[in-house]
Amino acid sequence: MSVQHLIAVAVIGPGSGRLGANLAAAVALIGLVLGGLALARSAGRIGSGSGRRGAIVALVAGLFGIALAGLHLATNTGDFGTGSGRAGAIVALAVGLVGLVLGGLTLARSRHAG
């Protein structure tokens, strides 16, 4: 094995393209779950309170997930089916957008209620 081959394996690595997409999807999914819980809390289904704090966290997590997915798509050179994580980043964009919408709905509801 040559030095160039070892460097290429260390830099590229197996599945390294999926890491950014998986991280973006995980952060976006956290935003989606927190947005759903905050919306349920503001509707009075679980707990008490307006869910405002959860809505803000959902907005931040959704936005951060969207930013990570966008960064991954901008820096990714692979195509679909190559293991570069392009499809995962697109899914993370959609999930982050839903989390963002749920957080925004909850904030709008908490403003009208209080």
Rank of each mutant, 00 (worst) to 15 (best):
G65A: 06
L29I: 04
A21I: 03
L73Y: 09
L23A: 13
G96W: 13
G85Q: 08
S50T: 15
S84L: 02
L34G: 11
L102F: 15
H112D: 08
I7V: 14
L73C: 05
N22V: 04
A89H: 09
L32K: 02
R53L: 12
D79T: 14
R109T: 06
G65P: 03
H112W: 10
N22D: 07
V101R: 09
G36Q: 01
R45E: 00
S2Q: 05
S2E: 08
R18V: 11
G44M: 09
A8C: 00
A25Q: 08
A40V: 01
G103R: 05
L37I: 10
R18D: 01
V91I: 15
A43I: 00
S84A: 15
I56H: 08
G70F: 05
G104T: 15
H112E: 13
L102V: 03
V91Q: 06
L97E: 04
A25Y: 04
R53H: 03
L63H: 02
I90W: 05
L34I: 03
L37N: 07
I66M: 14
A87E: 14
R86L: 15
S110G: 09
L105R: 14
L63P: 00
H72N: 12
T106Y: 01
R45F: 02
L97G: 10
L37A: 12
A40R: 01
G15C: 04
F64H: 01
G103L: 10
L107Q: 13
T82H: 07
L93K: 00
R41C: 03
V27C: 03
G44T: 11
R52H: 09
A38S: 15
G51Q: 02
S84W: 07
L63V: 09
L6C: 01
A108E: 05
L97W: 13
A89M: 10
R53G: 00
V91L: 12
L29D: 04
G104F: 13
L102G: 00
D79F: 14
P14D: 13
I66F: 07
L97Y: 12
S50G: 12
I66C: 06
R86V: 15
G99T: 09
S110R: 05
L102T: 03
L97K: 00
G31D: 03
Q4C: 00
L100C: 14
V3Y: 08
G65V: 08
A69T: 09
F64W: 13
A94D: 11
G13H: 09
V3M: 11
M1V: 12
L39Q: 03
L107C: 12
G35I: 02
G44P: 00
M1K: 06
G31H: 02
A43D: 02
P14C: 01
V9L: 11
N76H: 06
G88E: 07
I12T: 11
I7K: 08
G15R: 14
G83Y: 13
V98M: 13
L68V: 10
I7Q: 09
L97H: 02
L39I: 00
A55N: 04
G81K: 12
I56N: 02
L93Y: 01
V9G: 02
G88P: 08
R86D: 08
G62V: 10
V9C: 01
A108I: 04
G13L: 07
A21F: 01
A74W: 15
S42K: 00
S48L: 10
A38F: 07
A108R: 14
G81D: 05
A74K: 06
G62L: 09
A89N: 12
G96V: 15
R86W: 10
A55H: 04
Q4G: 06
A26V: 13
V11W: 06
G54N: 01
A25L: 15
V98E: 15
